[in-house]
């Protein structure tokens, strides 16, 4: 069981909590305690807005162990509005085609069941979905 390592990362996983550099204001995700921009110590917590756009993506059907239940699924590199890029699955894509540059927003979803069955701990974490609700709301107004 990998309980401790998932538990340790819950802040980052559930809510995209990273860091901001107190020296140069760079936003950092995943947190790494040393600012990749200026090299100084950066441990101030920062919660990202969760909004970004697709940098690249692909769809995988030959999934590794623990991920077959959701295959085929789309993974992407998402460039967050605040700067950093994250690797994440896209979810709730619907009928629309995913495109580079597509605006997306973070949601918290099940990533997998630890132990690959109905008995293991559920691992929750960030995924991204198209900014569709905003479009629908605008269309309704």
């Amino acid at each position: 069981m990998e309980i401790p390592r998932h538990w340790r990362l819950k802040k980052q996983r559930y809510a995209l909590v990273g860091e901001v550099c107190p020296h140069c204001d760079a936003k950092i995700f995943p947190p790494r305690d040393v600012c990749p921009e200026c090299g100084d110590e950066a441990k101030t917590l920062f919660e990202f807005s969760g909004r970004g756009e697709v940098y690249s993506y692909t769809t995988l059907s030959n999934a590794p162990a623990g991920y077959q239940a959701s295959a085929p699924y789309t993974v992407a590199l998402v460039k967050l509005d605040e700067g950093p890029m994250v690797t994440a699955q896209l979810t709730d894509i619907g009928e629309q085609d995913v495109e580079i540059g597509m605006p997306v927003e973070m949601v918290t979803r099940k990533l997998r069941s630890e132990g690959d069955d109905d008995r293991g701990m559920l691992v929750y974490g960030y995924k991204f979905r198209p900014m569709e609700l905003q479009q629908l709301a605008a269309a309704a107004d």
């Binding site: 559930y14 239940a69 959701s70 699955q89 979810t91 709730d92 979803r109 099940k110 929750y124 995924k127």
Partner: peptide, 13 residues
């Protein structure tokens, strides 16, 4: 619900 959704994730949103 989608395959990655449950009462927890829906409650969060």
């Amino acid at each position: 619900p989608g395959p990655d959704e449950d009462t927890t994730t829906m409650s969060i949103e």
